[in-house]
Design a protein around this nucleic acid. Structure first.
Lengths: 133, 133
DNA sequence: GTGTTTGCAAATCATTTGCAGCTTA
DNA sequence: TAAGCTGCAAATGATTTGCAAACAC
């Protein structure tokens, strides 16, 4: 069904080599750098297909808009630093999340869950402490 | 600064009487029912002002788009049932979230956090068990 | 060949804004 | 009166689609 085209391989390579969530515009820009002349609609349709195929997952960031990342990364959540913009990956245990807890306490059976954190990374926190000293 | 107008009061009343997160379109439709002829831009600007004033908060739902709800509700998260569409409110303890855990385990200092769950509510789970019996 | 994919332009859809007239304090 | 609203229409910006030509299998 899906054909192996240069554009498709280019997009897949991008996801594989880029650990950070990418916006559609990011992807388009990166593809454009590798293959000038590639249409936005082409990139859009490829990403949409990859998402439908489950190879890529979409994450929604409040202000920063929706982004996409390679689905083969282990399940995790994002902690975005409002100071330096870095993104840390956290797993369920890091945030304390447990679907069984939810089920036991509320009766709700969790199928999917998304946790997005915004705050200050340890590096920036250290810098702040220094400057205040 | 902000003036008390009929449109503004109408929107505020909507938020106060509607516990569910509302999309801009929802709000516009409801305001339109109460006050035919109200412009979408008017509703939009009122909601934007309420958000800026901290009276209303925005929540982002993957597919369903961004929504708004009355900010005076206690801090909570949403569990959307994929079967019946109902929305349950969960607090941090229900999902196990604790900012201190995050800080201790990762060094990340959480300022804001959003948790969105998708799954099956207890009611629908019960119905499913029945129909399979 | 036959069914997909691509580039281009144009349609959508949700948000936002400019502006002149109306309203609230 | 003066600063804020409002309605209307139009600008944005992000997605999404139609279509004929190009391409993969």
């Amino acid at each position: 069904m899906d054909r192996q085209t240069v554009s498709r391989e280019t997009v897949i390579r991008l996801f594989r080599t880029n650990a950070r969530p990418l916006s559609m515009a990011d992807i388009n820009r990166l593809v454009g750098a590798a293959r000038p002349g590639t249409a936005y609609s082409t990139v859009f349709r490829i990403v949409r297909k990859l998402e439908a195929a489950g190879l890529v997952v979409r994450v929604d960031w409040r202000e920063r808009g929706s982004r996409y990342e390679w689905a083969k990364l282990p399940h995790h959540h994002h902690a975005v630093c409002v100071v330096c913009g870095s993104v840390a990956d956290l797993d369920d245990a890091d945030v304390g999340f447990n679907p069984d807890t939810v089920l036991r306490r509320t009766g709700f059976s969790v199928r999917h869950h998304a946790i997005e954190l915004e705050g200050i990374c340890s590096g920036c926190a250290a810098s702040e402490r220094e400057s205040h000293a």
